[in-house]
Design a protein around this nucleic acid. Structure first.
Lengths: 202, 202
DNA sequence: GTCTATACTCTGATAGAC
DNA sequence: GTCTATCAGAGTATAGAC
């Protein structure tokens, strides 16, 4: 093997380990997942998995870092398609939900298995998640700046409500169910923007 | 000991086991919790804990059943205080959030540790959760029946959005933070009812 | 780089004295 | 009913051959 081949093989096997881990972590949770199972899902043996990632926790950290990088890229990409902050909000919800429900099991793990990390790794993960939230706060702040939002709405609570509902969909959503990920996203955005009351009661 | 004393002692020690378990499950998750730790938190030794509950999973099931019974009682109680379906919705959100954030760690465990149960126990838990959701659907259906909700709103998605956001608060809420549980509840209800847009854009 | 084989720890659960 | 002592199995991680 040349150095290039080795590098490509390394990248490929690293990715296989991460994908295998994301399957197992998603299905059983971090604590209940075994390294033997992860290795099997990645098509390798436990010793080889350990060669790639020194511990189960480091595997989780790498998986989360990859997940948050993808989520950030996807969100930035989605909101760059329009300049209207309200439309950016809708596009952001679609981006987030599509990734969580259809595309990337690492996002679920990132959202629900944070407890698996300890110490510095935990702090690093929180820092990355805060960066993602900061993009959202930028969108919401811009929306408020247009004067089109009620001035009494707390933007942080608005983000927590919206993303909380979105994150929770992973608990009940089924790809064979009534709605697609995009339909859920659009309905959620619509309710939060317009409310459900027929008449405004303020 | 008389029979009555034994019974009271049994109930008391059973409750101690459940409370200990709820602490440990809440802090570390079901899979990472150890029976030794739970026994210590309950002020007893592993052998005694095992005398009360034959397995870790049975302990989880008992804890969840207790949690859902409390949530159901609390919700019924809250909505019985008014006849206005919109006010019932607000009261229900307060009830749910107060229990989750301030009063009962079993509710968190119920919401987030369902994976710990398998087979029949899992099915039973889902059945009980569906009963709780059915109360909510009754409130929302009644609200729609008054004609005060937009007719195009999907009531199931409305429940999933609202309760999803509410359940997710357990991930970020701090008792020392900016808002109380009731403040979050009222803000969430307000946003979902009225929306955040200053002008209705339909 | 990947494999086999295994060390060592911790876990849930049990048996049986008191 | 509660305790002590312990078992059998599963878990992560390692060592070292290839």
């Amino acid at each position: 093997m040349t150095k290039i081949d080795q590098l490509e093989s390394k990248d490929h096997s690293d990715a296989a380990a991460l994908i295998g881990a994301s399957h197992v972590f998603r299905r059983k949770g971090f604590a209940a997942a075994t390294t033997r199972e992860i290795a099997a899902a990645a098509g390798m043996l436990p010793g080889s998995l350990h060669y790639r990632y020194a511990s189960k926790e480091q595997l989780l950290l790498a998986l989360m870092e990859r997940g948050i990088a993808r989520a950030t890229t996807s969100l930035r990409d989605a909101i760059s398609k329009t300049n209207d902050p309200i439309e950016r909000l809708r596009a952001g919800v679609r981006s987030h939900l599509r990734l969580l429900l259809d595309e990337d099991e690492a996002i679920y793990v990132l959202l629900y298995e944070g407890r698996g990390l300890s110490g510095d790794a935990r702090a690093e993960m929180v820092r990355l998640r805060d960066q993602y939230d900061a993009i959202w706060d930028g969108v919401l702040y811009a929306a408020a700046g247009t004067g089109r939002l009620r001035p009494d709405v707390d933007l942080r609570l608005l983000r927590l409500l919206l993303l909380g509902a979105v994150n929770w969909t992973a608990q009940w959503f089924s790809p064979n169910g009534t709605y697609s990920a995009d339909e859920v996203a659009d309905s959620y955005a619509d309710i939060v923007l317009n409310g459900v009351l027929a008449e405004k009661g303020r």
